[in-house]
Computed example of a mutant assay.
Amino acid sequence: MSDDTTENVDSREEDPNLDASDVDDIGTANTMRERGGETKLKVWLTLDGHRLVVAGLLALLIFGVFVFGGTFFYQYYLTDAQTADTVETVFSTMISAIITGVTLVLTISQIVISQENGPLGDQRDRMNGTMEFREYTKEITGTPTPADPSAFLRALILESKEYAERLRESVHDNESEDLRGEVDEFTNSLVGNAEAAADKLEGRKFGSYTVVSAALDYNYGWKIFQVERITDDHSDALTEETRVILDDLKTALSMFGPAREHIKTLYFEWELISLSQNILYLSVPALIVAGFMTTYIGGSSLPGVTLGVPNLIWITAAAFAVTSLPFLLLISYIARIATIAKRTLAIGPFILRDSQR
């Protein structure tokens, strides 16, 4: 699924080249999940859920599979573990995997950090570009551009909402019934979407997925297309005032696109650095557990049974789940980053999914 560029329309939307009379639905759902038709569980696992919690649940799944498999599926596990080097082989391999994985993640972190380094001239160009964009945003909103990313996006969303309300008022007495109906449906959808996204952004701190999630919910690209379509399909019925408002609305929506992409890029860098830190923290206990299992448990016999399951199975299953945590955390982070990247492949009013055209 995708957001406004890849997921910004529902299954009822038709070819953008159709006439206004052929358009079945102008409005869209307020959230990315509703537009994409995905289940809450899938969205939670890939996007909404805390990454440490998702990694922990995956570790519990591995633990459960090992306990079930060793107890009911592979009856010769205890014999092999005590007579062969099964446990020692498994955890010595995990040690190599942990060290290799940490090295890989540190390399990724260095690449991300290197993007922020550069000569003075490049840094000045970045600063000039940022300040120009902020000045242009100030001209549109009429107020100083907020420094907080969530407040910045919220200001652009609320500005587009204000233009939408003015657009609805400007066509209230228009003689074209088709124009009034389409504008009413479009503005109602935009205002509802803007209010939902603005409420989600209010008071949010950068670094949490909530900021990016609210930005993805606001499918600005589909709204830009509707502004262009209404302007073209009803050019004869539009007054000069309405044309100006449509142009201002399109400008506000167009400003939201690069602003969201910039915030998304900063969020990706933030997440990758957080991933590196968390994997470093988890790799130490994972190495300790793997080393302990290789040195002291491999080839030995642990007597006793707990809850009908041999203690050796409990210990090896728990140890394997713990040593898998760095890799599972990498999976949980990359799942979110890759999903966001796929949903924002294009910028502007493009529809990349066949099922939503």
Rank of each mutant, 00 (worst) to 15 (best):
G221R: 01
A321P: 04
I279F: 08
T242E: 07
N8A: 13
L156S: 01
T231C: 04
E132Q: 08
G36M: 07
L156D: 08
E169H: 10
D4T: 03
T5N: 06
I98E: 06
Y163K: 03
G203R: 15
Q110G: 15
R260L: 04
T5E: 12
T100Y: 04
Q356H: 14
L41A: 15
F63K: 13
V105K: 02
A237V: 05
T251R: 07
M131R: 14
P144V: 14
D232P: 02
V102Q: 12
I99P: 09
F327P: 00
R134Q: 15
T31N: 03
G299L: 06
L18S: 14
G207S: 09
E116G: 15
D122R: 08
I98M: 06
G207E: 05
L158G: 10
I113R: 06
V105S: 08
T316I: 12
L266Q: 00
G70C: 03
D233G: 04
G64P: 01
I313F: 02
L312R: 05
G299S: 12
R357V: 09
A338N: 12
T71Q: 05
G142C: 10
S355Y: 09
D80P: 03
F350C: 06
V309L: 13
G36T: 02
R124L: 12
K264M: 00
F63N: 04
E162L: 15
P144L: 12
P119K: 14
F225Y: 15
A319G: 06
I113H: 04
I315Q: 14
K200A: 05
T28D: 14
R180I: 03
L52H: 06
A318S: 10
D247W: 10
A164Q: 12
F268P: 05
L280I: 08
F152H: 11
A147L: 09
I108T: 11
N188P: 13
E132W: 08
T28L: 11
K264F: 01
